[in-house]
Simulated scan of single mutants.
Amino acid sequence: MAAKLMSTDQIKGKLLQGAFTNNAPLVGRLSDPIVDTPMVLTLDQLRPYDHNPRLNRNPRYDDLRASIQSRGLDAPPPVTRREGEEHFIIRNGGNTRLAILNELWRETGEERFFRIHCLFRPWPSRGEIVALTGHLAESDLHGELTFIERALGVERAREFYQLEADTQISQRELARLLKQDGYPIS
């Protein structure tokens, strides 16, 4: 069967027709990756971890600031995002670096302080415990938590463990769980 040829007017009519329409629902945002994924995020998209055990300024703040200002960010913070949350948060250690980047961005307006490379790690099923023990370990190793900061962080971890287990946790069990999650204490 021979194909019917279109006239010039028919071709013009087809070309001038409206664009294809997409009746699919709009997606507010893409879902987060399900594996560790490098990302470039802006400071607008990042927030510090809200249960950060550090209450006082990091004693190494000025040294870290000078380093970031001259060299840039050598060790980008790992990030994650709770399900349903809009912003990414620091996963374990890096709240001081985030504060410094925000300060340098406000002072200089330099793009290198605003857009940073991060490693996104999916929010785990035990997210709050993993994040808090990660912050305790990182802060204690790299920035010397005070005794009270450490004690308050461990107490908050106890609360998270008790919520998870739906029972009271003894000091011995707390020490075992913290060690199991990467933050050994005596």
Rank of each mutant, 00 (worst) to 15 (best):
R81F: 00
T80Y: 06
I185A: 05
L43G: 00
H87A: 13
E173V: 06
E110L: 08
P124L: 15
D32R: 01
A2V: 15
E164N: 10
E111A: 06
V27T: 11
A3K: 09
V35Y: 06
A131V: 10
A137N: 01
M1H: 10
A137G: 00
T42G: 04
E85M: 06
L145S: 01
I169P: 04
L98S: 00
L98G: 00
M39T: 04
A131E: 07
L141V: 09
S31A: 08
A19H: 11
C118D: 01
R60T: 12
F114H: 12
V27M: 13
Q17N: 13
Q17P: 00
N58E: 13
S186I: 08
A66N: 12
A131C: 09
R57P: 10
K14E: 11
M39F: 05
L16F: 09
L152K: 04
Y161T: 03
Y61F: 15
G13W: 03
M39D: 02
L46T: 00
P122E: 08
T108V: 04
G127Y: 05
V27H: 09
A99V: 07
N23A: 09
L178K: 00
I11W: 00
L43E: 04
D9N: 07
E149Q: 05
Q45G: 02
S31T: 14
E86Y: 06
S170C: 09
R57L: 13
D36T: 14
G182Y: 01
T133P: 02
V79K: 00
E128I: 03
G143I: 13
K12T: 15
R57S: 14
Q162Y: 06
G153N: 01
H135T: 04
L41N: 06
E107K: 04
G84I: 02
M39W: 01
F120S: 13
N22R: 05
L16N: 02
I169N: 00
T80S: 13
T96P: 02
N92V: 11
I89F: 01
Q10A: 10
I68M: 03
P25C: 03
R106L: 11
E155W: 03
T133S: 05
K12N: 14
L145E: 03
E173N: 07
L43A: 02
L43M: 04
D63T: 14
R65G: 01
N23F: 13
P124E: 08
L30A: 15
D181K: 02
Q180G: 06
L26H: 15
A151N: 05
I100S: 01
V27N: 13
D140G: 06
L177H: 06
P48K: 00
F160I: 04
R97V: 14
E110N: 14
A131S: 11
G18R: 15
L178G: 04
